[in-house]
Structure formats: structure tokens, C-alpha cells
Design a protein around this nucleic acid. Structure first.
Lengths: 146, 146
DNA sequence: ATCTAAATAGAAATAATTTCTATTTAGATA
DNA sequence: TATCTAAATAGAAATTATTTCTATTTAGAT
């Protein structure tokens, strides 16, 4: 499992709690809050602390295993990052079932120069983020929030 | 002042606190937290409550006068929205001096179809956000955070 | 098998935001 | 211009999400 290698490479211990968190995201394939993750993992562990979840999610985001999503509400979400080689990529989420997916396509470079001219800024970073409806929710329709 | 017209149109009273908040953003031309705005306006008013700032910023974001920025830190920022006709646009911020600017250029439509094919999502919304260094900070150099 | 630095648990604290209630006020109306 | 009232406000308190702290446990190096 490649994630263990990443942890090793980043000199992070491979603890049961860490493995469980990563597996949670791999299995669910959806984005979630620290609290979501904690509630779920409480079923599998005799003891598991919410601060542990918070710290690990932040660590995983730092090393590129997870992506951090800042929604409209006052809380952070996290989602699995499948493109692990620091390849340039972005994410799309299903607003219905919370599925998250990453993709590489990005044509920002084509308009970067023109935006720089227009705004008189030197651009250092771009954030590109999509929301939509995934295939399952398109077909099922049952989860669609009207 | 066009913002008063927008308030009227949205059936919001034109109160001194509201005018002061809008003027704050027009004058500063930078993004700020509710707390930043509150600290600044406390100098101009005998009484002004932080909940009033919070509620008004949220209201202004709803009606398009302000844009809401969720940074890496656990708090919301707001910035003025100069393109008021609900024209499609995005924002760029200066990470040095907090200046915010909006721009219309966007070539997302060119790759939308391809991303939909690739991800099997039906895209409903895209967020596009830039960070960089503004002209003043490029030239001055003094504010640059190394 | 031992040792120790990293990780963890749980409690508490912090910080940002939201809610609540009493009071004030913008502006509609007569 | 005076009156009235629903919207807006102030301030306190509560809520919620996150972070910090300290004692204990444990992954993994030796």
C-alpha cells in the first residue's frame, strides 16, 4: 500500500490510528470532517481521541495524502488525494453524496499572462475547484437534494 | 453610490453601520476578517457590536457586494466585489498586503466537457481563485514576506 | 529485550462564530 | 411632521470547531 511508503518517507510512524484514517478515506471515497472521521472510527477502537484525528488530518494534508476543502460552513473537510506524485491536479466533489475525485486537466497557464496584465499582479498560485453531481447520483436521483 | 441602490433593491435598510462597513472595504481595497472590520470601526462609533459585523458581512456576501474567502486558517475573510452585475468573475489576492481584485477572464468552459468525460461528473459550479503579489508590493518589496 | 521520541487520550482552553433578548432606529405611513 | 413598527443593533452568553496541554502509551530503532 503506497500510503505506508509515503508515511515512511516522511518519517511518520505507521500507527493503527493512521492506517485507519487513511483506510476510511480510501474506502468511503468521500470527503468528511474531522468529526465525521472520529465518529466512524470510534466504532473500531476502544479509545480514539478527536485531537488525534485533527492532528493526523492536518499532517496528511501537509504531505499530500489528503486535500483540505474549505466549504461555506465554518468547518474544514478533507478528501483523499489519489494523485500522489505531486502532479498538478485539482478536485471535484459531488454536492449530493460527498464523493471526491481528482483530475489533471487545467488550462490556467493559457490565460495566466493575460490575467497578470489585466490585474497588474504577479500570480503565484491558483486554486481551481469544481462542484457537481457524480455518475451514481445522476443515475440514481434518490440522493439529489432539491 | 451604487451600493445604496443595491441595499434598497434588496430591501435592506441603509443604516450607518452598513454604510461604514461598505466604505471600509471600498477605502481599504483589501480583504479582512469580521474582527479586523470591527476593530477598525470601533474608532468611528461610540457603540458597535461584533455580531452586527458578522451578520452584515454575511448579508453583503449573499447579495454580491462582498466575496467570502476561506483561507488556510480557521476563519473567514471578506473582500469587496467591484463587478456588481453578477457578471461571471473571479478574484485574486495579494498575499503580502491583502489587496483584492476581481477579473473576468475565465477559460473553464473550454475544458468543462473534457473534465466531465474524464470524471463522470456533471459539473454545476467552478471556483477559481488566484493568489499573487500586487503591483505595489512588487515594486516596493518592503512588505514582501520571505 | 530495551529504550525513547513520536503518538496518543482526555481534559481543558481558545478562538471564531452564532444565538438570544432587550433596546434602538430607519423609513413607511398618515 | 409625528407616529409606528419591523428591521437593525448592542451586549452577553452560548455554541461549535479547533488547538493546547500533560500524562501515558507505543512504534520501531538498536
Amino acid at each position: 500500500m503506497e500510503y505506508k511508503k509515503i508515511l515512511k518517507r516522511k518519517k511518520l510512524k505507521i500507527t493503527p490510528k493512521r492506517i485507519a484514517i487513511i483506510n476510511y478515506f480510501l474506502k468511503k471515497d468521500k470527503y468528511a470532517t474531522p468529526f465525521d472521521v472520529w465518529i466512524y472510527l470510534k466504532k473500531n477502537f476502544k479509545k480514539i481521541g478527536l485531537p488525534t484525528i485533527y492532528r493526523n488530518l492536518e499532517e496528511f494534508e501537509k504531505i499530500g495524502i489528503l486535500t483540505k476543502i474549505k466549504g461555506e460552513e465554518n468547518r474544514f473537510y478533507y478528501g483523499i488525494c489519489k494523485m500522489l506524485n505531486k502532479k498538478h491536479h485539482h478536485h471535484i466533489i459531488c454536492t449530493s453524496c460527498h464523493k471526491i475525485s481528482d483530475f489533471e486537466l487545467c488550462n490556467f497557464e493559457q490565460i495566466k499572462g493575460e490575467i497578470e496584465e489585466m490585474t497588474n499582479f504577479e500570480i503565484k498560485e491558483h486554486q481551481f475547484f469544481l462542484k457537481g453531481i457524480c455518475k451514481d447520483c445522476k443515475e440514481g436521483g434518490v440522493n439529489e437534494k432539491i
